[in-house]
Amino acid sequence: MKNKARTLIASAVAVACLSGNALADDKPLAGKTLAFVPTSLGYDLTDGWYNMLKKELEPEGLEIIVRDPNWSTATGAQALVSLISQKPDILMVQNPDVQSYARLLRRAENEGIPVLQINMRSSVETTAFVGADWVGIGKAMAESAVASCGDGSGGSGKISLVQGPLTSASSVYQMQGINEVLEGRDDIRVVSSQAANWDPSQARAITDTVLKQHADLCAVIDFWDGQAVGSAAAIRRQRGGEDVLLITNGGTEQTAACDNIANGTFDKYMTYNVREQSTDIAELVRKILTEDIRPGGERLDRTTAVRVIDADNLRDDSCWKLSDYK
């Protein structure tokens, strides 16, 4: 059965290659299908990847199908299962956490479908990975806080952490990075570490209470820009937004990131630029499909560099606009 499937795929690939060659060179991906399972469409990261990829690769003939599980791991798993039986040429998956899709990703690779993971590594290694290093982002945020609040900076050293859901993997890794930096430092004191569940209202309430308790709070590290606007609102109301540093991270979409950096809402912004990621993804997809890289062969890995944006280095093109790609 498996052999038969392999032969089929091989012949399909061969046919595709032949026809690809026969056709004009401007459609090298004609007849290929990419299936994308995000955590959910409808927010800047996934919309960015999806639309940029469409703009980039569809003219080359690639067909992109997307299954939107709307934040449900179980639905996502089901979508993966049905995609595996549909056998796309490449499967692009944004893991909700490290292990939920692990078994399914291995199954996909075993059936000969190369899997490209984005922004969150599963415990199973697959053909390709593109994405931010969450631990690195955590580290960068903590280092930024240390620089502004630690010894020699004149800050009080008190910082507050506003996490995502405690069980969310990206939140856990950011926390891990922060802990690595703060480990053994006694000039920085974490006065509050609370989960706001990606909800700005909760972030606002938490930060509000913490600010009242600690008049000399130096910095707030918020784990996602979408929720950090809540923390920012609390800071603005109580301190006029000045003497408390707000550090956050995100996918660098114009309204979510640069607008807020420009108006002083966010002080430091760690970015894993979706635009760069999309370029990486497109490149890897091309490579996998045209060079016929099979699962189990070469491993492709593009970790997105973490950069810091603040009011000083903000440029007009620091962010991307979703509207440019739709």
Partner: peptide
């Protein structure tokens, strides 16, 4: 089936 300890189960 999934061996998943995801929090949204």
């Amino acid at each position: 089936r999934l061996n998943s300890a995801g929090s949204d189960t």
